[in-house]
């Protein structure tokens, strides 16, 4: 059986926001080390990998591998019934076909209980190789979100060039073109705003902006985002969750003219 408690329902709400534009239904794979999700979008262009470690919950109990097949639209409906500050407990029995969700107000004078019907989902699990990336850029997640939003005015594609001087995002479309360059900084006063670049080799990659805009739904989960890139391979976009795990997105590049 699974029993896992989070001090604030807001976290699960935010996680759901971060994946529900990409994926309609997926397995939440629960075991004694935590809860993991790996799912691709329907076009197999993007993949989301989510890890919530057991020690990020208090308490956490799961004695065997338990895949919980969840329709995210349905889960979203139920989570709308939770207050952001509610204590959230999820429970599932080994052979059950429902997920129990309990929302408890902080002063415990209101307890609501919901059951979400689970489903059987055949998920294909992709083996993602450990990769040494040529360029690893850590930057403000809010800045990344703004750049994606701004350049989506210009084009549905974005070109990312990383050199030792900085990272340049550019777009070219019918109205004209635009670019934003962030220099390796710099902002010693505001660590959250700094851009740091680890570079083995310069990279230049083109991606669909639509997917980046889905990824930036994870912005509320972390003040930082890490972009890991090598030429001609999928980008890894990672948001680390404080003391809990991560949300990682992979996006295949666009290639050729």
């Amino acid at each position: 059986m699974l029993e896992a408690r989070l001090p604030q329902a807001k976290l699960l709400k935010s996680l759901l926001e971060a994946i529900k534009e990409l994926v309609v239904e997926c397995n939440f794979d629960c075991n004694d080390s935590g809860i993991a999700v790996q799912a691709m979008d329907s076009s197999h262009v993007a993949l989301v990998a989510l890890l919530l470690r057991a020690d990020g919950f208090d308490p956490y109990r799961c004695d065997r591998n338990l895949p919980l097949g969840i329709n995210l639209t349905s889960l979203n409906k139920i989570l709308k019934c939770a207050g952001n500050e509610d204590i959230l407990t999820i429970k599932a029995s080994d052979d059950g076909d429902v997920l129990n969700l309990v929302f408890e107000s902080k002063d415990s004078d209101r307890i609501s209980e919901y059951e979400l019907k689970l489903m059987d989902i055949d998920s294909e699990h992709l083996g993602i190789p450990d990769t040494q990336y040529d360029a690893v850029v850590s930057m403000s997640s809010g800045e990344f979100q703004r750049i994606c939003r701004d350049l989506s005015q210009i084009s549905d594609s974005i070109v990312i060039d990383v050199t030792k001087e900085g990272i340049k995002f550019s777009a070219s479309g019918e109205v004209g073109n635009g670019s934003v360059t962030l220099k390796q900084s710099g902002s010693v006063d505001r660590e959250d705003e700094a851009t740091t670049i680890e570079l083995q080799q310069a990279v230049s990659l083109t991606f669909s902006l639509k997917y980046f805009q889905y990824f930036t739904k994870a912005t509320p989960l972390s003040s930082r985002v890490v972009l890991s890139m090598s030429n001609d391979v999928p980008i890894l976009v990672e948001y680390k969750l404080d003391n809990l795990g991560y949300v990682r997105y992979y996006l295949a590049p666009k290639i050729g003219d």
Binding site: M40, V45, L47, H125, L126, G127, P253, I255, G256
Partner: peptide, 14 residues
């Protein structure tokens, strides 16, 4: 315009 690759071209299924 450019061609969108699929993740299946990079990662192995199981």
């Amino acid at each position: 315009s450019s061609n969108q690759k699929s993740l299946d071209d990079f990662f192995n299924g199981s």
